[in-house]
Amino acid sequence: MVYIIRRLMQAVFLALVMSFLVFAGIFSVGDPVAILIDPEATQAERVRLVAQLGLDRPFHEQYFIFLGNVLQGDFGNSFVYNRPALELILERMPATLELAFASIVIAVVLGIPLGVYAGLRHGSVGSKTIMAGSILGFSVPNFWQAIMLILIFAVILGWLPVSGRGEVGQFMGIHSSLFTLNGLKHMALPAINLAIGHLALVIRLARSGTREVRAQDYIRFARAKGLSEKRIVMVHLLRNILIPIVTLVGMSFGGLIAFAVVTESIFAWPGMGKLIIDSIHLLDRPVVVAYLIVIVMIFIILNLLVDLLYSLIDPRIRLDEVRQ
């Protein structure tokens, strides 16, 4: 309990430091007024806009006003959309989460069978092909993969659409592109793009796990008992290679949300990542600051959860608290 409270306090402190750094940095670059205002506006209109946005006040005042507002859940209005920044971000979060979810499913559903196969048939042509593909998956930069996917599946073959989220269906109160055919088609390329890096990782883990587990006594015993190969693989082997894979998937969820920035801006997927890139280009300070604070909070919470889950899964891993 003490551990959790200490971690939470660290988290709050970290969020404060980050908010200050980000605010100070954003404050010192760029002039949002120049972008927002009509070039033919008079000086009086200009002054009024500056005052309205609070940009005429000194830095520390702006920061404390900002901090006070943040604590009340108010991150300020977007300069561009003229709507609360937090609302904009939360509105786009489901799109990002569903993309991350879809790519985890792809990575696991394809990665485990491919990895297990490569581990069982070590040295065969199929295994070598899979491993070469996984190395390629690591090496090819994500954004270029995306362009290749677009070129092949959208431009040359014309099978799949390349931008937007498509129709959003509703199922049990959840809105998602996963529930319509059109939505799924729109999601296919971005989800594959986001999945490839993790797919390569899952393949590697499943393969090395399989090779390790296969030599264990209990597998030999199962074989000696006369169990079918299928049952040995599906029950005895799979269960034992799953733990590191589950951990990886849990830990990489944050990474997926971060990498979604690239995928979303290429496929014009209306998620948080695209919003942040657009906002950086438009110098939309409140949205950038709000995004950064939200994402830092997500990460702090994710890391905390992973640490706690770790000690649940494996009692040998002790938390700081016990050690001291």
Binding site: V22, V29, G30, G254, A258, F259, V261, I280
Partner: peptide
């Protein structure tokens, strides 16, 4: 540890959003 718990692309993005 703190540093490595954030993905590199995110750290770089935050920095560049701030620095330009």
């Amino acid at each position: 540890d703190l540093h490595l718990s954030f993905p590199p692309i995110l750290v770089a993005l935050i920095l560049l959003a701030v620095l330009g």
